[in-house]
Design a protein around this nucleic acid. Structure first.
Lengths: 287, 287
DNA sequence: CACCAGCGTTTAGAAAATCTATCGCCTTGG
DNA sequence: CCAAGGCGATAGATTTTCTAAACGCTGGTG
């Protein structure tokens, strides 16, 4: 165990997560044979078979599962420690979803730059929530129904997520505000959360006139701005479009939701690196 | 970061913890030059200087400290996951101090074997408390003043640590039980805890007749059995010697202590692997 | 002040690990 | 039965890593 080849462990972890040696080889820029050999050698070193080779790919054995879990955890710890290595203390990385980036962060970039003139901000957009812990000088913004469960993090609820239906002022019917039932007969724009569909299901109203799907909220909102229909989105994403009159609210979800927007940062290093000040600034933007 | 050489990170971690490349090389069965080169290459890959080279060895730079902490953590996680790999489920490893092993475990080995006939027990004696977390099928026994703070562990207080002074029946003076003051004039045997010295300091009694130091409790107790003086030790270590009349109690520390003996095991995998049953058995041995 | 011991670095060449390319052997789905 | 998609084994090429020896620096010592 002392002399175990750690690089081989990483190769194994990647192969295991793909369930396929070829794809692992692609990710590692190696040939399939190389991956096969390294895993074979690792198994010899450990004295344990980690992968079951099938005709349709590889799968984990019981021992393999334990090993994979351990290696994955360890790599996550390592990555957390190493992301910020070599980074200056005046660099901060903000992790968030693409729509939050477009609709919330972008309109506030100037204000941010003014508030922290010496700080260099790096934005990273993710489809998935980060699998590792946040390092020093990293901040994440995520919607969810509860506090960040990661014990290495501190987190703070920024705002409730309240849904509103919005459309372009040009699209507006004269008889607004209208009931949900009328609303549902118009072209509906929704994102991957499929909030209109859920609403329809919950209310029991049937026949939908027109339903357009986008893979992210920002696109649905942009479609609404262009007058293609009615989008449904959290309030925090549309403030800017409302104040610039590109969108108008035509309906507010009466149903209270547990969901909120949260900000998380590393529990370690609190006090250093401006992080707390930035979190305070972010929170202040939500009043 | 993706392609970072993990083996080099381990070499760095070992070198950093020794503060000396030669000793790291010895531990790794490598030449000094090899260690030097790997760390150099790692620094190039990371784009950061990790070690400050001095005339008297190496020391960590600020970045190096962060990196070392991260790597150490990650390796601990990994080791925790891998120690038990390839181990059968009917193997259990017990970690404890050497005196606890000699004076508590040894006399109970038969009883243990009877209680768990199918189980294979591996004992590991340590000078220091384990730096990694316990894996599945590992149990640790440690004295301390509080619960095991490791969040990945469950733990249970087995008994209070009460100190008693003991000596061989042959050594016994006719006028026992005696006061502490008289006691302190006799040859005193103590271990690395230096409990007699603390007692003398606390009571303020001066001139000590004779003080013999041993590096572990079991040796002090064995010396007492041989009639060389009076040892001071926790009650749980001497039960066997008392009942076999090799030792007799001549004084009990009246001062209550927060210290206790604790047993810890992994929080994960609870329910599997007999671990709970073994912990129960251990606890039952303390009534 | 000269000298030595301890420690890190550099270099070239040797040794070992690792990779690629190919071929062979399954299994699965048409 | 054949083709496609996967994995394994092997041999030779390539790259990495190691050793050994010489070098340079620093601090202690007589």
């Amino acid at each position: 165990m002392r002399q175990l080849n750690l690089n081989a462990l990483r190769v194994f972890a990647i192969a295991a997560s793909h369930g396929n040696l070829q794809r692992a080889a692609d990710e590692l820029n190696l040939s399939r044979g190389a991956v096969s050999q390294r895993i074979k050698q690792l198994e010899i070193d450990l004295g344990v078979v980690l992968l079951k080779r099938g005709a349709r790919g590889v799968s984990l054995t019981a021992e393999g599962k334990r090993c994979h879990a351990g290696v994955t955890d360890a790599l996550a710890v390592l990555e957390t420690a190493l992301v910020s290595i070599g980074e200056e203390n005046d660099h901060v990385t903000l992790h968030l979803g693409s729509s939050t980036a477009t609709k919330w962060l972008m309109p506030r970039m100037d204000a941010f730059a003014t508030a922290f003139p010496k700080l260099s901000l790096k934005t990273e957009v993710h489809e998935q929530i980060l699998s590792r812990s946040l390092g020093r000088n990293e901040i994440a913004l995520w919607p969810g129904s509860e506090q960040d469960p990661n014990l290495a993090h501190r987190s703070r609820r920024l705002t409730d997520i309240r849904l509103v239906a919005v459309c372009s002022p040009d699209f507006l019917r004269p008889d607004w505000p209208m009931g949900l039932e009328t609303l549902l007969t118009l072209p509906l724009l929704q994102d991957a959360h499929r909030r209109w569909e859920k609403l329809i299901e919950a209310t029991g109203y049937g026949n939908v006139h027109k339903l357009l799907n986008f893979d992210r909220s920002a696109l649905a909102l942009d479609a609404a701005i262009c007058g293609h229909g009615i989008a449904i989105a959290p309030t925090y994403m549309i403030e800017n479009d409302l104040s610039s009159k590109r969108l108008v609210e035509i309906w507010v979800d009466p149903e209270p939701s547990d969901d909120g927007l949260y900000v998380s940062w590393s529990k370690d290093h609190v006090g250093e690196h401006h992080i707390s000040r930035i979190v305070d600034w972010i929170a202040s933007e939500f009043r």
